[in-house]
Amino acid sequence: MNSDLKILKGCRKGDRKAQNQLYQKYKATLFGVCLRYSRSTAEAEDLLQEAFIRIFTDLYQYQPTGALGAWMRKVTVNVALQFLRRRKDFQLIPADHRFLQRYEPEFEVFEQNREEAILRMVQQLPDGYRLVFNLHVMEGYTHREIANKLSISENTSKSQLHRAKAALKVMVEKNMSTDR
């Protein structure tokens, strides 16, 4: 904690060394968050870059009473939301529901690297599904909070979550199927 405070002080003064220390300490965790919200690794890196810039810029808002990691994660999620909504092809409610028909299971990956396989499933969800799923399942936001954040109704949030889970279930079942 003392180490975090020291880094925090340096970052607030714009010290590059402290900023790099903070980056090195939290880059893996936050990159994991970004990967879940993005469609690809490259997009996740762009997101992470923007998230860290926002963190360094807004660091003065951070109150040391809370955990620094949790605050940074929250900032990263907000950046992810803004990042996705800025995208031109962003659709909160997907127009095409046939994405599951195009889904190809990755059996070997599923067996050898379960985490990577699961991440790819999430990344292949439509933007709206993935967003609501991440916010609710991973971040623990209620449907009311999600509705406020995304300016949608709670029912829409619920239906999106429901469809996301259904889609993921199908994907998991396809990968676990012995009928190859």
Binding site: K27, G32, A44, L119, L168, V172
Partner: peptide, 17 residues
């Protein structure tokens, strides 16, 4: 399904380039 994904991806850590 939620528990499965939460358990798998909540603590996901990856190194960026």
């Amino acid at each position: 399904i939620e528990q499965f994904f939460h358990k798998t991806l909540r603590a996901l850590r990856r190194e960026p380039t």
